[in-house]
């Protein structure tokens, strides 16, 4: 019995078509061109470039620092988002606006400022370095720059979700005997976890491609603090467009796999309690089974 269903909002076909065309022009076309260019090299050659000692080290640094930065932001960004949603304090609007600043700042300015701040004679560096931590011009510097750049992603993703949490759910947990920590870990955290994953994924992917701020604080020493985008620039400097494209494609594939994994995880955690099997079916199952 096939009946045509009518949607409340008209123009689904049009909207879908528009979406596909828009995404194709904006994303698929340039990426496709890139892959096509890289395909001038054989798979073996691409792998040779990707698995070179310097490339491998750069991948390690890039993915490692990005993961770490995204993880740090997932934790502290959660706290910032929580405080911005749940508490009111003087200057809250100011702090809220501050969160977006890394979006607006040219990344090179961010990188230079951070390098100046964390250098041995910088405002922060002069106190940190005597403790044995070098930040500017080490891989830690890369992480610091990436944390700065990607903070807004986690905070802005979490804020609306935290706003959505009903106070009553927390109260229910409390009357059931849950401690504050149990309420957080068993009730609040699971409900914001999907959004946290999304924020994490956004921060992570932004960090992977970040170049402008990182090169000013990284130190850029081969095998130690070179990031993949720097290597790509290095290839371009040699007029080796193919090599650069190959590196970019490998990076793209790796990030796509990672993002897909995170998104699947996010989708799964967000949707597993929404899949609506009709209740009648469940009732029939229950009636058929032994109870």
């Amino acid at each position: 019995m096939a009946t045509k269903t009518h949607r409340v909002l008209p123009g689904f076909g049009l909207a879908l078509g528009y979406t596909l065309v828009y995404l194709s022009i904006l994303i698929l076309l340039p990426l496709g061109g890139m892959v096509l260019k890289a395909s001038e090299l054989g798979f073996g050659q691409i792998m040779d470039i990707a698995l070179g000692e310097r490339s491998l080290a750069a991948f390690r640094v890039t993915f490692g620092a990005s993961l770490l930065a995204a993880a740090v932001n997932a934790f502290f960004g959660l706290i910032v988002a929580w405080i911005l949603v749940r508490y009111s304090f003087p200057g809250k609007r100011f702090v809220d606006a501050l969160v977006d600043l890394p979006f607006a700042l040219p990344t090179a300015v961010a990188g230079i400022t951070l390098a100046t701040l964390y250098a041995g004679n910088g405002w922060l560096g002069q106190y940190i370095e005597p403790l044995g931590f070098k930040i500017a011009y080490t891989p830690s510097g890369i992480v610091v720059a990436l944390i700065f750049i990607t903070l807004p992603f986690v905070v802005r993703t979490l804020q609306p979700v935290i706003e959505d949490i009903e106070m009553e759910v927390e109260e229910a947990a409390a009357t059931l005997g849950a401690s504050r920590w149990q309420t957080f870990s068993r009730v609040i955290f699971p409900s914001i976890f999907p959004a946290l994953l999304t924020g994490f994924a956004l921060a992570f992917s932004r960090a992977l491609g970040e170049y402008g701020s990182v090169i000013f604080i990284a130190g850029n020493l081969p095998l130690i603090s070179e990031i993949t985008p720097l290597l790509i620039i290095s290839k371009l400097e040699q007029y080796d467009v193919l090599g650069a494209t190959a590196l970019a494609v490998v990076m793209l594939v790796l990030s796509f796999i990672l993002l897909l994994t995170v998104n699947m995880l996010q989708w799964w955690t967000a949707n597993r309690y929404k899949n609506n099997e009709p209740l009648e079916l469940a009732a029939a199952k229950a009636a058929g089974g032994v109870s």
């Binding site: 009903e166 759910v169 229910a172 947990a173 409390a174 849950a178 699971p190 309690y273």
Partner: peptide, 22 residues
Amino acid sequence: LHAREREVGFVFQHYALFRHMT
């Protein structure tokens, strides 16, 4: 006494069930 120490059961108008739990 804190809510969790009062040994009261509370039922809310809008249920306040934990939606991520069975």
